[in-house]
Amino acid sequence: MELKKEFIRQIESIISTSKEKAIRSVDTHRVMMYWEIGKEILEEEQEGKDRAVYGDFLIKTLSEALEPQYGSGFSYRQLYLFRQFYRTFPIVNALRSQFNWTHYKTLIRIENKEKREFYIAENEKNNWSARQLERQINSQLFERLLLSNDVKAVLSVARKERVPTDVKEIIKDPMVLEFLGLKRESAYYEKDLEQAIITHLQEFLLELGNGFSFVARQKRIHIDGDEFFIDLVFYNRLLQCFVIIEIKTTKITHQDIGQLQMYVNYYDRFEKQDFENSTIGILLCTDKNDAVVKITLPENNKNIVASKYQLYLPTEQQLIDEIKREIEKLDSESNS
């Protein structure tokens, strides 16, 4: 007699689900333990007259008592983190059950409250792993979205207080594609970059942002006997529209913009349903002239976006310099 494979898979599924629940339960209890320890440390510290001196003495003495018995998880550094954890999240109801301790260790490093709230909201919405959260912080996601939005707009979309109405609210410029594993000093053909994106599609969707799903690559379209191929087609359920991406491994020209506009027009006229919004086109390029982009497109353009990509994580200084350039550009435009 032989057991049915479906029956075995069902049992395996039950075991796997139970193990995942057990791990999540352990993580939740561990987070609560660390929070309660942090609360006790901070409250005891506030009893001292010289809090800074007493606080350091308190944590050092406590670690010397606990570490020999419970291990390195209760070292001076860890106890200090527990204290910071409670200071950052003083309300127990603000803790998220889907966040583990690694999530919180990453979040408490963020001093800016608005920035931290953004990553909490995005993590909760997208169910990022701790590794994905760290990658988004290291790639300066918050700062990149601020290049074309204000803090209030970025936070309201992250918190689901409103649905984004403009592509610039979710598309980053620049996009960071370090996960492709391509060397930045090398030259690549567009097909190489496209293939790397398909190979790392999950990471690319994470970089694109909320609501994206993959539709097609090298999508063939016919226009009155002529044949064209669109590099990548996605759909965004938040914006309720198709999103076309054309890849350029050189500085974009007005011809590139015109080609993308043609693809957008085609999708609007032949693929888009009546209930859907207008198609969005993204030119993913190594470099761009913003003035050329602006002059080539209509003044009321909201459907074509040129976004630079880079194959390495940006430094904080690079993002600061970029934000300063954007502010100077806006000031110059308002004064002209």
Rank of each mutant, 00 (worst) to 15 (best):
P174C: 12
V243C: 09
E143C: 02
L205W: 03
E47F: 13
R109Y: 04
M262Q: 06
S75Q: 05
E203T: 01
I245S: 07
R135K: 08
F234C: 10
E276F: 03
I108Q: 00
P314L: 14
S139R: 11
E20Y: 07
D50T: 09
F270W: 04
F99Y: 01
Y263C: 07
K160T: 13
V151W: 00
F204L: 05
G73D: 07
T250S: 13
V233T: 02
I244C: 05
F85P: 00
L260C: 06
Y188D: 09
Y54H: 14
L107A: 03
T165I: 14
K172C: 15
R109W: 02
Q78V: 14
N236A: 03
E124R: 04
I198Y: 13
R237P: 01
R87D: 02
I37W: 03
E124A: 12
E190Y: 07
G55I: 03
G38P: 01
E134A: 09
D268P: 02
A153G: 09
N236V: 03
Q10L: 10
R116F: 09
K49C: 10
K105F: 01
E47K: 15
W128T: 05
W35N: 00
Y312H: 14
R9Y: 11
E178S: 15
E36V: 12
D224I: 10
K168M: 11
E40M: 12
L79D: 00
E124P: 00
D150S: 08
L58W: 07
H200M: 13
I14Y: 07
L238S: 02
V292T: 08
C241W: 01
Y54I: 12
F74V: 04
R51D: 05
A153E: 15
R269I: 01
F7H: 07
R83A: 10
Y266E: 00
I110H: 06
Q195G: 07
L284C: 05
Q273K: 11
N301M: 11
L155A: 10
L208H: 00
S16P: 01
N127L: 14
Q46S: 15
T199E: 12
N149P: 01
S63Q: 02
Q78E: 12
L79S: 04
L260P: 01
I252E: 06
I244N: 02
Y266K: 01
V215S: 08
L201C: 09
Q259V: 06
L208C: 00
R116S: 04
V293A: 14
H200K: 15
L206V: 02
V293F: 08
S129K: 05
R159E: 14
E190A: 11
R162C: 15
R220H: 11
T28F: 13
R220S: 11
F57C: 04
F99P: 00
T253W: 04
T249Y: 07
T296A: 15
R131C: 02
K288G: 10
I223D: 07
K168S: 14
E169C: 08
V167W: 10
I41W: 10
R96F: 05
G225F: 10
N289I: 06
F204I: 03
S213D: 06
S72K: 13
S148Y: 11
E328P: 00
E333I: 07
I197M: 13
P90V: 05
I257R: 06
K5N: 13
E169G: 09
K251T: 14
E207R: 05
I37S: 03
E271M: 10
E143G: 13
I230P: 00
Y266G: 01
K160E: 15
I320Y: 12
N126G: 09
L145A: 05
L232N: 03
P68L: 01
K191W: 04
Y263I: 02
R51I: 15
